[in-house]
């Protein structure tokens, strides 16, 4: 069944996934428009990370359709590669390449995958490092940077491929509190510049400020989906209310 891309840049339709016997995604459906910022939240183990990781095939879904910018995610190698090139991801554990310098980390993919000239790739990388605010760290190695700086390099690395969509898998959960702000600032700027973003996070302040929509996951199901104001002030579902009461106490 074919679908036109007018419906949205990401069409996620009735997706199921099992880990062995464990049913981790139970029929998730949502659509996303270009330029939207969606925040996904929920208790741990609810399937939110798995959900976004299926979008760029870090996890494979067993049932349902995932269509990214008009290309369906199937076992077709070409489709997978096309989608991976258009979707960038930032991990909780940064996963920077420790044996390469910061600049090399960012310039690696443009040089090897997009086949840019080395000087051009380095130029692009420097621009991105400036964009995330740490151009002076270019020749350092990841091990010499703080957590917040490393995550910003990771964002630059993902942006180096000029993706249409950026996924963030709990980007600030591994950071010390004083470094969370610098990363969130970069993400806010990114959102304001029009990037389509899906962010899995517990940072509700960020969600309130930047998200167009908030999606709440629990037990592998999409429980509630709403604008931030409605979500926080007028939660519909019982579980949503419970979750909010647990995290908003402090």
């Amino acid at each position: 069944m074919s679908v036109t891309s007018d419906e949205g840049i990401i069409i996620y339709r009735d997706v199921h996934k099992w880990y062995g016997d464990f049913h981790v995604l139970r029929g998730i459906t949502f659509t996303m428009q270009k330029g939207e910022v969606i925040v996904i939240c929920g208790p741990s183990g609810s399937g939110k990370s798995t959900c976004i990781r299926t979008i760029n095939r870090l996890e494979e879904h067993q049932r349902g359709q995932i269509i990214v910018d008009g290309v369906e995610l199937t076992n077709d190698l070409r489709n997978i590669e096309t989608i991976r090139r258009e979707v960038g991801i930032v991990f909780q554990q940064f996963n920077l390449f420790p044996h390469l310098s910061v600049l090399q980390n960012v310039a690696l993919a443009p040089f090897w995958v997009l086949k840019m000239k080395k000087s051009k790739a380095d130029e692009v990388a420097m621009q991105l490092l400036e964009r995330v605010g740490i151009p002076e760290q270019a020749e350092k190695y990841p091990g010499q940077l703080s957590g917040g700086q490393q995550q910003r390099v990771a964002i630059a690395r993902a942006l180096a491929m000029s993706p249409k969509i950026m996924l963030f898998d709990e980007p600030t959960s591994a950071l010390d509190p004083e470094m969370i702000k610098e990363v969130l600032d970069v993400m806010k700027n990114l959102a304001r510049s029009g990037m389509t973003m899906i962010v899995v996070t517990h940072e509700m302040g960020f969600a309130r400020e930047v998200a167009d929509r908030i999606i709440f996951f629990d037990y592998g199901q999409l429980v509630e989906e709403n604008t931030p104001e409605e979500f926080f002030h007028n939660p519909q579902h019982e579980r949503t209310k419970l979750f909010l009461s647990q995290i908003l106490d402090y």
Binding site: S2, T4, D6, G70, E72, D76, I80
Partner: peptide, 16 residues
């Protein structure tokens, strides 16, 4: 609107 590649006919040389 673009036509979307459907899952019925993946040429075998690209099917992982």
């Amino acid at each position: 609107s673009k036509k979307v590649a459907s899952s019925q006919s993946i040429p075998f040389w690209r099917d992982i």
